[in-house]
Nucleic acid binder design. Sequence first.
DNA 1: TATGGTTGCCTTACGTCGTAAGGCAGTGCT
DNA 2: AGCACTGCCTTACGACGTAAGGCAACCATA
Lengths: 233, 233
Amino acid sequence: MESRMGVRKPREPLSRERALAAATALVDAEGLTALTMRRLAAEVGVEAMSLYYHLPGKEGLLDGLAEAVVTEILAAVAAVDATLDGEDWRARLRQRFLAARVVMLRHPWAPALLSSRPNIPAEVYAYYDGIIATLLDGGFSYRIAHRALHAFGSLALGFAQEVFRPASAGGQADVEAAEAELAAMAEQLPHLTAMVAAEAHDAADPTLGWCDSQVEFEFTLDLLFDGLERARG
Amino acid sequence: MESRMGVRKPREPLSRERALAAATALVDAEGLTALTMRRLAAEVGVEAMSLYYHLPGKEGLLDGLAEAVVTEILAAVAAVDATLDGEDWRARLRQRFLAARVVMLRHPWAPALLSSRPNIPAEVYAYYDGIIATLLDGGFSYRIAHRALHAFGSLALGFAQEVFRPASAGGQADVEAAEAELAAMAEQLPHLTAMVAAEAHDAADPTLGWCDSQVEFEFTLDLLFDGLERARG
DNA sequence: TATGGTTGCCTTACGTCGTAAGGCAGTGCT
DNA sequence: AGCACTGCCTTACGACGTAAGGCAACCATA
């Protein structure tokens, strides 16, 4: 027996999801700089400090936003991928990237947000796992799959920072946390973890951007040079 | 006859250059978030508001920082390029990129800074002009040179934002200002301006990142796919 | 030598930001 | 009845960028 005293619902109680949805709408409409705690609070009809009951602070809010975008990308990619059963790796990868791009165009602030986040959202790993899976399915070795990921750069998520690794500014703890997190969901990222294992990176670098070694850089360089030479006409 | 009354110079009077040098040192040591007007002022032994005599505000400070990094890149690139007279385009481009990368590794904050600037520093145009010159010298058409620039992405300046164009948030004025600026130094950017003219972009898009059209995106995609296919082994 | 403008730095103050600390009404469980 | 918890609020603090204005030292000119 639920209480049903008023025809007017006084207010549904606000949740992390509602807050994040409002934040996304705000940022879509007015850009990242418009997103302040007070402003978002006003947007959902609440005072600033009330947000802290549902979100762990501004950074947590931004993390949530980033997570939400990647989730949206994940969904879009999964949708197109499901329609491409018979296709080869090129067609599949192409459609994946194009689908991700559509989401990015809907949220132009996403690349800047993602590249500014000190810790990589967990969903990003899942996204990359799907790319790796497609490559492996296409007959690529772990090594080339790895290098391909680097080479794709900004085509995958709309941004790329070859040199800069935000985690490097965050100290050792963040790296360890990222490692632990990655290990925790290893069975959900079979291809990624297998690739990392196969590549046998130094233990300190188990994510996907830090191994910005000279060799990755030059591999991409040569890939592009070769392609351009052929296109020179 | 200059006045020379004291053995002790009371203080040399602080300049834009000294302020920018201090800012660079600060950011190298403690990251972009440590750069505040008050902190920088303290660093050069002055009160915060005194900085406004030499710099037009925080944004102007960041612009100056960005300009300084690109200038450093420009110098490094010019130095190596001078030693590569007989080499082909591949070797020259490679050394250019690697030289730029060294500077980036010295200033890990540079990609984030550059990608966050609402207006592209003028020096960036000069940098791209040099790349285009190398490509043209290597026998490339303006069209392929243009697409090559897009394909290089983050290899050139350490970052790339395929979708996001900061200027889009800045309104019309910024685009016009950029156009005017570019036109003003057209004779210093012969290859860039020639390429833009040859490509006949829509008048609204004369810079280097905005033409992030589907075709550029897919060109890069195919370039990489072709290269990867050959590397598949 | 007196004077007035310019240069370089300072003090004070305002509005905005994120958020710590604590209050207070409503709900549900014991 | 009592109490804990939930969800929101008020107040307040320190840090930020910067507008407004003051003040001393310098310099050129009369």
